[in-house]
């Protein structure tokens, strides 16, 4: 089929006549000169744009729209791929907004987990209380927003079991976390109830080490690394958006994978 948009008659070749001498006179030096000025042109239009407020708010609006699209794409029954225990990286990769030397270990015996918001039972939790809940293990891939990834093995009660235990309103929108290293975070309820979202207290079959969140951290297989706060101190079930540490700096909130 011939395109209805293409002309019945092609333009006359003579209209290029003006250019024929130019084309014929082109030499290699000309091409090199041309590419140099092309490079200069590209430099002039370079992308060193600062971030004006209007651009920033437009990008954030699209990012929030993307959060909704991501929530739609999230299938609560879809499980992340799991791997054999032999592939677990020991020790795991350290990541935080500060250096590993600056980690402040948490005292497991005096540590308590606060529970607040839309829950029936607000008593504080000790580490042994979490150990007493049914435990789940998973060997999953950790994917950082930066691009790196590793395989890790995590164990602990699922967040779903914990939420059911405290009589949380499972129709609330968010589960929000606070941590000992001042790294607030929050996730959507659908992800909180996913079978691969754990309150991890073990790594590779052993008690979580200090740099990786002892005594308890969130570990969810369906979100990027920065949605996994370590050294948890408080869990709140809420309908109020609380954002998070990196989200306040511009990163997307949903961060589902």
């Amino acid at each position: 089929m011939r395109s209805p948009f293409s002309p019945d008659v092609v333009p006359d070749t003579a209209i290029l006549d003006d250019h024929q001498p130019l084309i014929r006179s082109l030499e290699r030096r000309g091409l090199i000169r041309g590419s140099l000025s092309l490079g200069a042109l590209a430099l002039l239009t370079g992308c060193d744009v600062k971030r004006p407020e209007s651009v920033e708010s437009a990008l954030l609006a699209i990012s929030r729209l993307n959060d909704d699209v991501q929530a739609l794409l999230f299938n609560p029954n879809k499980l992340a791929p799991t791997y054999p225990a032999s592939m677990i990286l020991r020790p795991p990769k350290f990541n935080a907004y500060y250096d590993v030397m600056d980690v402040k270990p948490v005292n497991g015996t005096t540590w308590r987990l606060e529970v607040s918001g839309r829950v029936a039972d607000k008593r504080h939790w000790k580490l042994q209380d979490l150990r007493a809940l049914p435990q789940t293990s998973m060997v999953i891939q950790h994917i950082c927003v930066e691009g790196w990834s590793y395989i890790g093995g995590w164990s602990g009660p699922t967040l779903r079991i914990f939420l059911e235990h405290i009589g949380a309103d499972l129709r609330a929108k968010y589960v929000a976390f606070k941590t000992a290293d001042d790294y607030p975070s929050s996730i959507d309820m659908a992800t909180a109830l996913h079978p691969q979202t754990l309150l991890a207290i073990q790594y590779g079959g052993q008690t979580l080490a200090d740099p990786f969140g002892f005594p308890v951290r969130l570990r969810t297989a369906t979100k990027l690394g920065y949605k996994n706060p370590k050294w948890l101190t408080s869990i709140e079930v809420t309908n109020t958006y609380t954002g998070g540490y990196w989200e306040a700096k511009g990163f997307p909130w949903f961060a589902g994978i």
């Binding site: 437009a58 990008l59 699209i62 700096k249 511009g250 997307p252």
Partner: peptide, 11 residues
Amino acid sequence: WAAWSLNWHFA
């Protein structure tokens, strides 16, 4: 920085 590159990319 990366957060805004990411936002540009996803927009």
